[in-house]
């Protein structure tokens, strides 16, 4: 996955969970929790959606790596295996 693809996927996933913030720019280094009022249920839903879209297994111990956009890009570039399925379009 390219950086752009990861950013696009994170954006779509995040805004489907917190549609109130749709269109806002994600600050690369700030925690989703702070910028988009993401609680632990939202975050788990985010992890589930990212797992389904990328096929990457995301153990709980890796959660801290995925709390920011920057973190997600680094994590999925490193971890990404062949995607299970094509990314879903809009």
């Amino acid at each position: 996955m390219t950086e752009e693809e990861i950013i696009d996927l994170v954006q779509r996933t995040l805004f489907s969970i917190a549609p109130e913030f749709e269109g806002e720019k994600i600050e690369p280094g700030s925690a989703f929790r702070d910028q988009f009022e993401i609680d632990s249920m939202d975050f788990l839903n985010f992890i589930i959606a990212m797992h389904e879209a990328t096929g990457v297994d995301i153990p709980e111990v890796d959660y801290p790596d995925l709390e920011t956009l920057e973190g997600c890009v680094g994590y999925f570039q490193k971890k990404h295996q062949a995607p299970k399925s094509e990314l879903e379009g809009e």
Binding site: S40, L44, I48, E60
Partner: peptide
């Protein structure tokens, strides 16, 4: 909880709450 969540698929994980 950590052990439980390690053994189940992502979608079945449980929150501490």
């Amino acid at each position: 909880l950590a052990t439980f969540n390690e053994e189940v698929p992502v979608a079945e994980r449980i929150l501490p709450a």
